[in-house]
Design a protein around this nucleic acid. Structure first.
Length: 606
DNA sequence: GTTAGGG
DNA sequence: CCCTAAC
């Protein structure tokens, strides 16, 4: 089997056999003048010879590069780093650390695990694939063939050392249940595993990473683990069964395990699973090309921006390096350092600024740190309104915002908005709505205005809230809003009729057709968006199945405003099962009520 | 713009 | 209910 590797033009001897090394476009420009590095793409043939790559292969790798730029989990890069270190250390300063930071975890996985384990284990090159995607090829290469023993292991270790701390598995002695750890503890474990900190707060992510680190595998589909003296045991049956039960039919079962992260060979997975899934996996899943990867039952989500933001923020704090997960690898590495320092904490006018890493120019751009981006328009509009009514008070400040929002025609209530008459009381729901409206007032949300044209109260309701101490409400949602933008939760309980409509809608159109349901069944409920419907349905599902399990009838929770009638819950349950939305957890025994319905869920297995 | 899913 | 990613 052939392998794609890249070698530095001036040091061709050092390429480790079997290590998949990738062209690095990002690094090249950086050092171009001082030390031009030319990467060459070759294949390693069976006998170990280098064969010049074909154009097609070049293209393939090019794709990978693109991919890698946007993908933090680039594995090949890690190996590449090793290769570099093996060569000379002259380049280290410029790119090593950023590299480490960006490839959260995986680099370390490579560096440590390849060294410690793969060296001893016989290379598992029994993978009989020929036509798998190039991505697969690369990963397999780096994971399974850890034969760079002669040249790299020590370098890898050194590298770790140079980056500050070593993985210390002694820190995770004893039995640890990852599920029970707090984020902080997960951080500790992460540090123990990878020898460095992370600021990511996503528990899933952390658990996964740790698991990956400990198993030397990307094949971590379950996040329930127990660590025992540095070894990782899966918290079994539960996770596995769920994994399968999760999916709709037998066909999907493999897909459930075949999610995008899973790029490694089936040998790595667990024996029990192998028995059951091995065949289908090797036949269809593993061999399949990228398209089939998307069969995964659920959408894969990467950590949200929020996490990323936070992480980059904190890193900036102590490291002085703001590693934005932006796509600009390479280029901004050098500029980052310089750009950040002067920019840190600098305020220009009313804006906090941050370095603009684009192009490495170090330009400062307005930056609102970790402000919850909740309906930014509201605050803008609030300002606008204030502005227009109060004359040219802060015109300058608002100007830009006003420019963004469309100019508002003068609406009937405009004048009233300004007047401040304290009305001490207001019905909660109404105030919610009014509040909302107040924020949107200038926007003149036609629908709600029409439905409830007394926007006179809007100001009052706001004031009421402010008076009643709801000002501190801002902080509840962790919003230290700079612009005085206030985030208000408006809650409107679902009425029984609404629920009924929703259920009917689902019955008619099916769960998932939220916009349809919204259009046709909820056309008169302006305040229920399709997302609301979806959320409510989700809750109904939860409720119905929860009730069916524990005790039926009304749920005993004290703050449940309207106990949903059992009839509706039953209906929900039936619909859910028809739609294959039944929670997999309770499939075995708990379907008593719906009885007859055979759902596709289980048909694959029973 | 819609939908899914985490928070 | 909010937010964001994926579609």
């Amino acid at each position: 089997m052939k392998m794609v590797v890249g070698i530095k033009g001036n040091e061709e001897g050092v390429v480790e056999d079997g290590a998949a090394v990738k062209l690095s476009s990002g690094l090249a420009p950086l050092k171009q003048e001082a030390d031009p590095i030319v990467y060459k793409l070759v294949r390693v043939d069976f006998d170990g010879r280098f064969v010049p790559a074909t154009d097609d292969e070049l293209m393939e790798v090019e794709d990978l590069l693109e991919l890698e730029k946007s993908d933090m989990l680039s594995i090949p890069d890690a190996v590449e780093t090793v290769a570099h270190i093996a060569d000379k250390d002259e380049l280290d300063e410029s790119f090593e650390k950023p590299d480490l930071e960006k490839h959260e975890g995986l680099s370390e996985i490579k560096l440590t695990k390849i060294d410690e384990e793969n060296l001893r284990a016989p290379a598992e090159d029994s993978l009989p694939k020929s036509a798998s995607s190039s991505k697969d090829r690369l990963v397999e290469g780096s994971v399974n063939n850890g034969e760079e023993s002669s040249s790299s292991p020590h370098d890898g270790l050194n590298k770790n050392g140079s980056s500050g701390s070593k993985p210390d598995f002694s820190l995770i002695k004893g039995e640890i249940d990852l599920d029970k750890l707090t984020t902080k503890e997960l951080h500790e474990t992460f540090r123990a595993t990878f020898g460095r900190r992370t600021s990511v707060k996503d528990k899933m992510w952390l658990k996964r990473r740790i698991a990956m680190g400990l198993t030397n595998s990307c094949d971590v589909t379950v996040t329930s683990f127990i660590i025992n003296d540095g070894k990782l045991l899966k918290k079994e049956e539960l996770g596995k069964n769920m994994d399968c039960g999760n999916s709709v039919a037998g066909e999907v079962c493999s897909a459930g395990n075949d999610e995008p992260v899973n790029l490694v060979a089936p040998n790595v997975r667990e024996d029990t699973l192998d028995v059951e899934l091995g065949n289908s996996f090797t036949e269809s899943g593993c061999r399949s090309d990228d398209h089939l990867d998307h069969r995964a039952a659920k959408r894969a989500r990467k950590p949200t921006k929020r996490y990323i933001e936070e992480s980059s923020d904190t890193e900036k704090d102590f490291g002085g390096k703001s590693i934005s997960p932006s796509k600009h690898f390479g280029q901004d590495k050098a500029s980052c350092k310089e750009a950040v320092k002067p920019a840190c904490g600098v305020h220009s006018g009313d804006f906090i600024t941050r370095p603009d890493s684009i192009g490495g120019s170090g330009v400062q751009v307005p930056y609102v740190s970790r402000i919850r981006r909740c309906r930014p328009r509201k605050s803008i509009m609030a300002l606008t309104k204030f502005n227009s009514s109060d004359g040219a008070l802060n015109r300058k400040t608002v100007e830009s915002s006003a420019a963004v929002s469309k100019p508002q025609p003068d609406y009937h209530s405009r004048a009233k908005l300004v007047e401040t008459k304290p009305i001490p009381f207001e019905e909660p729901i109404a105030s919610e709505e009014e509040r909302e409206k107040q924020c949107l007032t200038s926007m003149s949300d036609a629908i709600s205005q029409a439905r409830e044209p007394k926007s006179v109260d809007s100001v009052d309701s706001t004031q009421l809230e402010n008076a009643s101490g709801n000002n501190s409400d801002d902080h509840v949602a962790t919003v230290p809003t700079v612009k005085g933008g206030v985030r208000r939760k408006h809650h409107r309980a679902w009425s029984l009729t609404e629920v009924t409509k929703l259920v009917d809608g689902v019955a008619m159109f099916g769960a998932g057709r939220w916009s349809e349901i919204k259009r046709l069944s909820f056309s008169s409920y302006a305040h229920r968006t399709s997302v609301d419907l979806k959320d409510k349905w989700r809750n109904l599902l939860k409720a119905s199945f929860a009730n069916s399990q524990v005790d039926k009838g009304v749920n005993p929770r004290k703050n449940a405003p309207i106990p949903i009638p059992a009839t509706i819950l039953v209906k929900v349950r039936e619909l859910a099962e028809l739609n294959g939305q039944a929670p997999h957890v309770l499939k075995a025994g708990s379907n008593k009520n719906s009885g007859s319905s055979v759902n596709e869920n289980k048909s694959g297995y029973l």
